[in-house]
Simulated assay, not measured.
Amino acid sequence: MKIVIMAGGRGNRLWPKSASSRPKQFIALTSDESLLQMTYRSLAQHLPERQLFVATAAKYVDLVKAQLPELDTDRLIIEPVQRDTAPCIALTALRFLRENDDEVIVTMPADHLIPDTKSLVDKLAEAEANAETGEAIVTLGVVPTRPETNYGYIHTVGNGSNVRKVQAFLEKPSKERARKWLEMPEVYWNSGIFIWKPSTIAAAMKRYQPDIWYPLLDAEVDWEDVYAKLPKISVDYAILEKSEHLFCIPVKFDWDDVGTWKSLERFSKSDEAGNIVKGNALLADATNNIVFSEKLQAIIIGADNLIIVATEEGLLVCHKSSESLLKQYVQQLEDKEGGKH
């Protein structure tokens, strides 16, 4: 079993600390190491490094090499440009199939936090055994511990079974619906971790996404031009929501995608007034704020329930209740900047 750590995303919900030039997976949020370093090195404690691969965009190759000098170049899978997870996974499958290697692979994000790596590896081995037969696609479904509205969910069937059939993917819910799902033992958080054979990926791509698979398969020249024209779509929408061969293994270990500024409240200590402060900041008459000032000295007076982040990339001042809007405004900003060139 090989593990392919996908490190090509953008992490807009943690702007401006996570930006296009240095996205979320390459920054240190919960420790002195980046999320990519933590993911790779924790897995390397339990598996031979020759089984660990990193898939990333060409623009991030130097970052990957700088943060993981122990990673051999032949264990890098490089996307010419960013086209979301479906093209990335198709490219990964094609790489192994062209080497006549159809062993089970794990595709997983670089930027999720799983402290108990040993339990993760044990569950991946269990999933591997199920993914070796037929066209089975296996995912790990995390047993929810709170009514989380920032995660996607998976609805399964098969009470009492260690391997459950996936009935449907569920979009990020309202608070009320998340509370309801928390009480349903057949509903799990979508971990984004999938276990399958390269030939299984190929078969699914041919069936559901021929516009991705066949251009990749046929590309011998103008490789970058072909990749740039592929549909930009996540693997969830492209394949997983359509597949009739998707199974889920429930897991109970701690898991978090550290996807928003408010998620830091689960990992960071706060002061007596409930403020989380990282960097150079002085707070007065301020409560329940998240403050991150990278270099500049900051003074915050009379503020409550705000997210305030200052980096070389930009400045964010946002009420916690409006944080869900951040991604769309960052996209507007990137679209505007892209139009200038």
Rank of each mutant, 00 (worst) to 15 (best):
G259V: 08
V330S: 03
K242D: 06
Y329A: 03
E312Q: 13
I249P: 06
N288P: 01
K242S: 09
L315P: 05
L240A: 02
D304F: 02
E334L: 14
K320L: 04
A284W: 01
D236R: 13
I233E: 08
G314Y: 10
E312G: 15
E294Q: 15
E313S: 15
F253S: 08
L264H: 02
W261I: 05
G259S: 15
S321G: 05
E265F: 00
I307C: 05
C318S: 04
S243P: 06
I299T: 15
I233D: 02
V277W: 01
I290P: 00
S324M: 11
F292L: 13
I300M: 11
H319G: 12
Y237L: 09
S243Q: 04
L246N: 04
D256Q: 07
P250C: 09
E294T: 13
D254Q: 13
K295S: 13
K242A: 07
E313V: 14
K278I: 12
V258F: 11
D257E: 09
S263T: 10
C318R: 03
D254S: 13
G314V: 10
I276D: 00
I276F: 03
V277S: 02
S243A: 14
K252F: 08
A310R: 11
L264K: 03
L283S: 06
E244K: 13
I308H: 02
K278H: 11
I307R: 08
A281Q: 05
S263W: 01
T260I: 03
G274N: 09
Y237I: 10
L306G: 03
C318N: 03
S322A: 10
D285T: 03
L240K: 09
K242L: 13
V330K: 04
K295I: 11
K232H: 12
I290R: 03
W261A: 02
K320G: 05
L240Y: 14
F267R: 01
D285A: 08
S322Q: 12
G279Q: 08
Q332S: 08
S270F: 00
S324G: 06
I300C: 11
W255H: 12
E272M: 10
L306D: 01
S321I: 04
Q332E: 07
L315A: 04
N275F: 08
Y329M: 10
S270W: 00
T311A: 07
W261K: 05
E313A: 15
L316E: 06
S324Y: 12
K269R: 11
S324A: 14
A310E: 11
G314H: 12
L240N: 06
L306K: 14
D256Y: 04
F247W: 15
F267P: 00
S322W: 02
I300W: 01
L283N: 03
E312A: 10
C318I: 00
E323D: 08
G279N: 08
V235R: 05
S234H: 14
L325R: 12
L246A: 07
T287M: 02
L315S: 04
Q328M: 09
K278A: 08
S243I: 07
S293L: 10
D236Y: 11
V309N: 01
E294N: 14
I276P: 01
L296K: 15
A273R: 12
H319R: 15
E272V: 12
E312M: 07
E272D: 14
V317M: 11
G259M: 11
N305V: 01
E323L: 08
A284Q: 09
L325D: 10
F247S: 09
V317N: 02
D236G: 03
